[in-house]
Amino acid sequence: MEKQSPDWTDAMNLLTAHRQSRWTVKYTADRFFRFLCLGSVIFLGAVLGAIVLFVSETGFLVFRDVSLSEFFFSPHWDPEHGKYGAAVFIAGTLYLTLVTLLITTPISICVAVFIAEIAPPWLRQWLRTLLDLLVGIPSIVYGYLGATLLIPWIREHTGAPVGDGFLAAALVLSIMILPTITRITDDALCAVPNEWREANYALGGTTFQMIVRVVLPAAKSGIAAAVILGMARAIGETMAVVMVIGNVAQWGFDLVTPSSVLTSHIVMQILNVDFQSTTNHALYMMALLLLMISISLIMLIRRLRLKGGAS
């Protein structure tokens, strides 16, 4: 309640000064925030770049001691005797992924179709929740169940003495990536406009015709993205695989012979090698291969998504 009687211009000056300072503060904060965001992006980029750079720098050292053709095409991995062929692991990774997808893709699509098109709404909600829960289960749990339940079962039913191998790994991986593929396929199916379904019925088509002729083709790029995402997870999976694959550097195309893939081989060996040894460099090269495979898969997904447009 103090009484002051400053003159009018003074008051105006004060007010503008006050305003100006407020504006400056606001803009400084603005600018600061911009730099913070930009800095975060640069940080992320630098980290990613550093990973690729470091892994490839160490990885390419392997070719000082091992020829390109030996590393990629020789199946003999025996570092003690100077043999560094990684063909078993590379082919193993591709083969395991293929078998996994052959098992899991049809099942996933059927489950997704059931959820999106057939199931009553209450069941639909339950199933979606269930699948979301399954996505969150750590892979070591799947691996442990595979090692304790699945392998004795395989041994009993195939007569294989060990039971570890691509069959066990592919089954574990299939169960693991099934919820991922199903949920994304489900989303893709739901993105198909309802009018199209109604048009099918208006033309006298059955539900089966609607699903096979209308919905699935319309959602095809979304489904492809789902499968590739599942594939990326399967290729990179380590813990679940190392527990059931047997970890032997030999071909395992008959599905029940213990074999090895890139991820499981790296995790088996990486702690037990000398930093400066060719073995270590070879392991880094394998890591680089994995990195390249998953990067190209992600790029493929982006391209599919762009092409697919709405879905």
Binding site: V162, N247, V248, A249, Q250, T257, P258, V267, M268
Partner: peptide, 10 residues
């Protein structure tokens, strides 16, 4: 270190 009756663990 090979064969269908051989495996390695971590």
């Amino acid at each position: 270190t090979s064969g269908d009756n051989y495996k390695e663990v971590q």
